[in-house]
Amino acid sequence: MVNLEVNIGKTTFKNPVLTASGTFGNGSEFDDFFDVSRLGGILLKGTTLEPREGNPYPRMAETPSGMLNSVGLQNKGIDYFEKNIYPKVSLYKTNVIVNINGNYIEEYVELASRVNKLDNIAGIELNISCPNVKMGGMAFGTNAASAREVTKAVRAAYNKTLIVKLSPNVTSIVDFARIAEEEGADSISLINTLLGMAVDIRTLRPSLSTITGGLSGPAVKPIALRMVWQAAKAVRIPVIGIGGIMNSDDAIEFIAAGASAVQVGTASFIDPMASVRILEGIEEYLTTKGFNDIKDLIGYINRK
């Protein structure tokens, strides 16, 4: 038996395969396909204080080996979450992490203190990297001073595992990784989507109602991998790798480059069972390669 367990902050994950926020709904959408509790953890759709309608249709465009989205954090708000979603996700026998978003620091803080009271939520992923909202979101994650301020404020309001989700739309990912660590984050996850755009040449209009949107899928993988590698070398806290992970080979690349865990995103749209197949693939790889513990694979390429 291979040991797949990893520790991130105050949380033990039975395996390193998690799902990326906004690509896994609230988990229940996958119940027909597989037992969600098999995963190391699930990250729920981005939540805000107030309900949000998101951006107008069209919000999606397919691009070579990827897709652009501009959903804009459509969700029913934290009240609805507490009443209707929390009781359901509490039944999963895996770590459930809430992805929080706000326009102002005060909103992030209030969300964090509300989630702090929910016993069955293992942690928060602080999203300061959504490219699809006018205020907040990426504005926090691409400015060093505000990234610092929001992380510090949320840390003070939340005592369980705090993961800061970084934006790739910055010049130096290492700076932001260090800021998160300095302000007390337990972990960083990266990458969120890359700002991109597409034009429909039949209608000669932008493909998205918002003109620009976030690129995800295999198209972003090499960039994500490079950033994860850089960040993992720069900080001591565990790094969670995200970006274009479609199969276990991709996941293994991220882990070998320094990720302690991975999140599966867009892949779940194409194969709803992608995350669990990736889990099986990692286990098989470790066995074949003679690793007894996933920890021996984490950052393998960085060792002499």
Partner: peptide, 22 residues
């Protein structure tokens, strides 16, 4: 026939405006 990302309710890309919101 809205454009669809996933088809089973997780990507929120296929929305339509209704009297109950998106």
């Amino acid at each position: 026939e809205n454009l669809m990302g996933c088809g089973f309710g997780v990507c929120l890309c296929c929305i339509v405006k209704t009297v109950d919101g998106n």
